[in-house]
Simulated assay, not measured.
Amino acid sequence: MKIIAIGDNVVDYYKHQNKIYPGGNALNVAVLCKRLNVEYSSYIGILGNDMAAAHIIDVLEKEKVDFSRIRQGYGENGMAVVSLDEHGDRVFIGSNKGGIQSRLGIRLTPEDYSFIEKHDLLHTSVYSNIEHVLPDLKYAIAISFDFSTQTNEDYLEKVCPYVQYAFFSGSHLTEEECRVLMHKAYRLGSKVVCITRGADGVLLYNGEKVYRKSVIPTDVIDTLGAGDSFIAGFLVSYMAESSIEKALRHGAANASETCKNYGAFGYGLDYFPKNELAVQ
């Protein structure tokens, strides 16, 4: 299996630790899939030229993720300020609004399209701002998309027809609301619709039945990245064996392991910002 992730990257600044950890949905999925022994994992995104960007590049090299087609701009990398509550649940308390990536935006070239087509699966998200190219990509590669909490009907109509795997964060939704959302996304074109619900586990619909998977009990240190870990575990398993039940178990196990450590996949680096206002 060859996977490519396109879009958001950040560093998560844990203010209470004075450390930054590499993150961002697309970046996380690229790294976490590689850790699950996929044959090849690639990442395309826009980085800044600061310390945070240098840390991300160093980590991608160590994790053997192909980042040969990244862009770098003159400016700060995306950064989010993170706090943890008494249960280890991550709470976002500020950001620099995506840094340089949000201001420049990713524009794919013909060379990028040729590179993408060498992969089996593309993962991206609502944070990546590449919805405009999904119609061009649909017939070239299977697409996985993380909607996070975005359930606006106009947005679903814009994206669902072009993505095979749709993931949502639904801790704030009732089970009935989740069922309505899953059926709506499926009718619009997504073939596998999955909603992660925090401590309430996962619901998934594939047009035939609704599946559910409970969380795996673990000593939680930090939930940041757990959803991305679930996505990576699910995709790697499902692409290999086409079993919903096995993929749900694999995703849950992967998410459980992530909760045992700080950051989405580690690599905390000491960080003392000179300008606190930049990340409030």
Rank of each mutant, 00 (worst) to 15 (best):
K2L: 01
G7T: 05
N9E: 02
N9H: 03
V10I: 11
Y21D: 05
A30I: 02
A30L: 02
K34S: 05
K34V: 00
L36P: 03
N37S: 10
V38R: 15
S42N: 07
Y43K: 08
Y43D: 06
L47A: 13
M51A: 15
M51R: 14
A53I: 11
E61M: 13
K62S: 13
D66M: 07
R71N: 11
A80V: 14
R90K: 08
S95P: 03
I100L: 11
Q101H: 11
R103V: 01
R107G: 13
L108D: 04
L108A: 09
E117F: 02
K118F: 00
K118H: 04
H119R: 02
H123N: 09
V126G: 14
I130N: 14
E131Y: 00
E131F: 01
A140W: 01
I141G: 03
F145P: 05
S148G: 10
Q150V: 09
E153A: 15
V159A: 12
V159E: 11
C160W: 00
A166C: 10
S171M: 11
L173F: 02
E175T: 08
E176C: 09
R187I: 06
L188W: 02
S190E: 12
V192E: 09
G198F: 01
D200K: 13
Y205I: 11
N206E: 05
K209F: 02
R212Q: 15
V215T: 14
P217D: 07
T218N: 06
A226N: 08
G227R: 05
F230P: 13
G233R: 04
L235F: 00
S237D: 04
Y238V: 08
M239P: 02
S243W: 02
E245S: 14
E245F: 00
K246C: 08
A247T: 12
L248G: 07
L248F: 04
A252Q: 04
A255V: 03
A255M: 00
A255H: 02
E257V: 14
K260H: 08
K260A: 12
A264G: 15
G266Y: 00
D270M: 11
F272L: 13
K274F: 03
K274C: 12
N275D: 06
E276A: 15
L277E: 15
